Simulated assay, not measured.
Amino acid sequence: MRTSAVWPLLFCTAVDVSTSCFLCFVDLNDIVTLCLAYYTQNHRDCALLAEEIINNNQKVIEAGRVAEGYERQLKDILYAPIAPHLSDYDGTLKDDEYYTNLFQSIADNFTAEASKLPRGLQPYGRGYNCIDCQYDDCGYPIDCPSRPLPRQAPS
């Protein structure tokens, strides 16, 4: 088995890969490539830093709750600040501060740009869920109130 094929498997066991816009839209091989320059060369630590700054960021999760059909735009928004780092690895190791700033920049950019995309018609309506990597539905028809009406006492 080639070494490049092993890294994603190791990465998958190091972090919870089912709970973020970052992991919904960024290929595991690209995450490993992004983390190649991590100064300890411990990709798990790099992934945990990404998880802390991007994956567990409530603003990122909320920004990713867009109307149906916009997942391609979410992916493009997320990849825009990552792409330059995938091709310019020069062999120089980078420290925690570099990766903290990089991941914070990715989170901030995603939040700002994804927030501009259309939302569902109801505040609690159908929207992309970065925790599950799928669209969620509030369970109410689109023409119903976004919250259940208070129950009336029987007359």
Results as ranks from 00 to 15, higher is better:
Thr100Cys: 10
Met1Phe: 15
Ile82Asn: 00
Ser20Val: 02
Val60Pro: 15
Tyr89Ala: 12
Gly91Phe: 10
Leu10Lys: 03
Lys94Asn: 12
Asp90Glu: 06
Arg72Asn: 14
Phe110Thr: 05
Ile31Leu: 09
Arg151Gln: 13
Ser87Pro: 01
Asp143Ser: 10
Thr100Arg: 13
Ser155Ile: 14
Thr19Trp: 13
Leu48Met: 05
Cys21Asn: 13
Cys24Arg: 03
Leu49Gln: 05
Thr100Ser: 14
Tyr38Ser: 11
Ser155Tyr: 07
Ile53Thr: 02
Val17Gly: 09
Tyr135Thr: 01
Tyr124Lys: 08
Phe110Glu: 03
Asp16Met: 09
Asp30Lys: 12
Cys21Asp: 11
Leu28Asp: 09
Thr100Gln: 09
Asp76Ile: 06
Met1Tyr: 12
Tyr79Arg: 11
Ala107Glu: 07
Thr40Gly: 02
Ala14Leu: 12
Ala47Ile: 05
Pro154Arg: 14
Tyr124Cys: 11
Ile53Ser: 00
Glu97Asp: 14
Thr3Pro: 12
Thr33His: 01
Tyr98Gln: 11
Asp27Trp: 03
Cys138Asn: 15
Phe110Lys: 01
Cys35Gly: 11
Gly69Gln: 04
Pro123Ala: 09
Ile142Pro: 06
Ile31Arg: 01
Leu49Ser: 06
Gly139Phe: 05
Asp137Phe: 11
Pro150Lys: 08
Arg44Gly: 10
Val17Asn: 08
Asn57Leu: 00
Met1Asp: 09
Glu113Val: 07
Asn55Ile: 04
Tyr79Ile: 10
Thr3Tyr: 11
Val26Glu: 01
Ser18Asp: 06
Arg147Cys: 04
Arg126Asp: 02
Cys130Glu: 09
Asp143Gly: 07
Ala83Asn: 14
Ser115Cys: 07
Asp30Gln: 08
Gly139Arg: 08
